[in-house]
């Protein structure tokens, strides 16, 4: 089951990356597929927890640099085949059936997606209809690498906390934060692909999600969100002369961080009271 969890984690990311690469209607289909696979990942994780198996989010590095979309779609297909084989060994037959049924449909969808040339790795660092100066381009490049990884990291941390908690109040907050980070990851990943600088977020260090001190984690998280707000503001200022559209987008992301901070403060207050720490 550990190997199955790892393979599903990898194919989730590859499908999400394929969604970033696509420039037509296939994008939304690939996003939907990646959402379904992420849910598979959480179901398998739940089985691991129920079976008391010690697990982590380690995975292999995923090469995704392609020039044609069909190459990555074939890769997804092959990865799904590996998962099908792993599912044969799964004791939870209901779960295996559910995942198998979804895979069958995803295979059909994949075979129907049209060919596209991929420009997500051409390192042009240009956005359609937006002319940024070199300094603003460098600032945006660095921001996108830092923050896309950060959003992936947050998804995995909150997912781990949620999976290992039965507290409905905290899980509601973790769930909202996961959804918010998904939106940010998709926004940043899409922008990276448009700029030709797409990369798969790196593997997360266990220490980050196997949280031993929730209070410290939430306090650090609030501080990190405050820093992220600063970065968004700096970036909005850096690009405002060249693009009001981009500046407004980063102001919007900056404002969303306020909500994340409020949720984390709510979780901190609740946790401190409940656990009497």
């Amino acid at each position: 089951m550990l190997s199955l969890s790892k393979r599903v984690h990898e194919v989730w990311l590859v499908t999400l990356m394929a969604g970033f690469m696509s420039k037509n209607e296939s994008k939304l289909k690939l996003y939907d597929m990646s959402d379904i696979i992420f849910r598979h990942f959480t179901w398998i994780e739940n089985d691991l927890i129920k079976s008391k198996i010690d697990y982590d989010y380690d995975r292999d590095m995923i090469p995704v640099k392609v020039e044609k979309l069909s190459i990555i779609l074939n890769d997804i297909n092959l990865r799904l085949s590996t998962i099908e084989l792993e599912l044969i060994k799964l004791d939870d037959r209901d779960l295996a059936e559910r995942v198998n049924s979804d895979i069958k449909y995803m295979r059909f969808l994949l075979s129907s997606l049209p060919e596209e040339s991929v420009t997500a790795f051409n390192t042009q660092r240009k956005l359609d209809n937006i002319e940024l100066n070199e300094e603003a381009t460098d600032a945006l490049t660095l921001f996108l690498f830092e923050e896309s990884y950060k959003e992936y990291e947050l998804i995995m941390i909150y997912n781990y906390l949620k999976a290992n908690s039965t507290d409905a109040f905290l899980n509601r907050i973790f769930n909202i934060l996961i959804d918010e980070s998904f939106f940010h990851l998709k926004s940043f990943g899409d922008m990276m692909a448009k700029m030709g600088i797409l990369g798969v977020p790196r593997v997360i260090h266990k220490e980050l999600y196997k949280v031993t001190n929730v209070v410290e984690f939430l306090k650090d998280g609030i501080n990190e969100e405050l820093l992220a707000k600063e970065e968004c503001k700096k970036l909005a200022d850096a690009v405002s002369n060249d693009s009001q559209e981009l500046a407004k987008f980063f102001d919007f992301i900056n404002y969303q961080e306020n909500y994340h901070i409020a949720l984390m403060k709510e979780a901190l207050e609740y946790y401190t009271k409940e656990k009497n720490v």
Binding site: D60, M61, P63, K65, T123, D138, T141, I197, R202, V203
Partner: peptide, 16 residues
């Protein structure tokens, strides 16, 4: 910058 981007997009030898 192209070399930096290359390592950012595909870090070598990353992992456990």
């Amino acid at each position: 910058m192209s070399e930096i981007l290359n390592h950012m997009m595909e870090p070598r030898n990353y992992g456990n």
